[in-house]
Design a protein around this nucleic acid. Structure first.
Lengths: 157, 157
DNA sequence: ACCCTGAGTCTTTATTAAAGACTCAGGTGG
DNA sequence: CCACCTGAGTCTTTAATAAAGACTCAGGGT
């Protein structure tokens, strides 16, 4: 436990009910939703495929998928592999795709702070022509922020 | 429900137990942890302050804080406001600060996709000298990715 | 010495998730 | 055409988590 006596920053109060960040966390920040999005991003589009990969129960998966569809993050579609019967799948909508920065940032954080050192296979997020994609924090003036302790929360009005 | 017959991308299988992204989601992707981090970022460092802001119960807050400290995302410290008794607070560690890209990306997504139009007060994340900070997806070659549908998941080895 | 407050723990009740049996519709094979 | 398989769920029961709120305990203040 560090022991600092410097004046600490004052509390920026934005009620949870009016905060975009809190709403976003409420929308996708639960135990399963982000993992389901990961599955869809990885190309698991069928119910049972997602269920097997995640080890989630049918009822919970059913609920979460319905919620994600209802929130406009996922959408359902039908497809048919040649010689197979028609099946239903889930795919990202534009709103769902807009979560990529969140997912990629999480992936980066996990890779840098949760791996014991030598991790075998790492999920990679890249463009279709194979270029790696990463998140950067860019200031209004175009410069990159590297020191996170320089960032603070304020209330804009 | 759209009805596409184009060949869908194949499934990129990375077991959840070996995936940095899944681990990151496991670590902070639950109902309360991210909201608690939001509080700390906003300067709410005391137990009861966080509890009041979030409406979380004491026992759950206690558990989550302990977990976040144990995971090295938060740390405890003591401080004393002038004329007040010493108190304990929670602050982000370097590992916790490294989650800023995730938080900022969530904040952006919430602001763009969850707000009904005219939202009164919006939490702003900026540098100490008042410059707004935003996340960008940058490709290996330095160009920004604007079309999210161009991003796919692969397994790197 | 007594009281207040911050920072919890403990106990009871309500919600949510897990496990796994059951349903139902669209095809497939005979 | 009929029986059967499979994907995509629902339903029921049991276990785990969270909510509500009383209780504890230590450090100051008066």
């Amino acid at each position: 436990m560090k022991n600092h006596t410097e004046t600490h920053t004052s509390h920026t109060r934005v009620p949870v009910s009016e905060c975009s960040l809190a709403k976003a966390i409420r929308a996708v920040g639960d135990t399963w939703s982000l993992l389901i999005l990961r599955e869809v991003i990885c190309g698991a589009e069928r119910f049972d495929q997602i269920r097997e990969d995640l080890g989630i129960t049918r009822s919970v998966l059913s609920n979460r998928l319905a919620r994600l569809v209802q929130e406009g993050i996922l959408e359902r579609y039908q497809y048919r592999d040649s010689g197979q019967r028609a099946r239903k799948g889930y795919a990202l909508t534009a709103k769902g795709h807009a979560l990529f920065p969140v997912v990629i940032a999480l992936r980066e954080w996990g890779g840098e702070h949760l791996e014991p050192g030598n991790t075998p296979l790492r999920l990679q997020l890249q463009t279709r022509d194979g270029l790696r994609v990463e998140t950067k924090l860019i200031r209004e003036d175009g410069l990159e922020v590297t020191d996170m302790t320089d960032i603070i929360a304020t209330v804009k009005e």
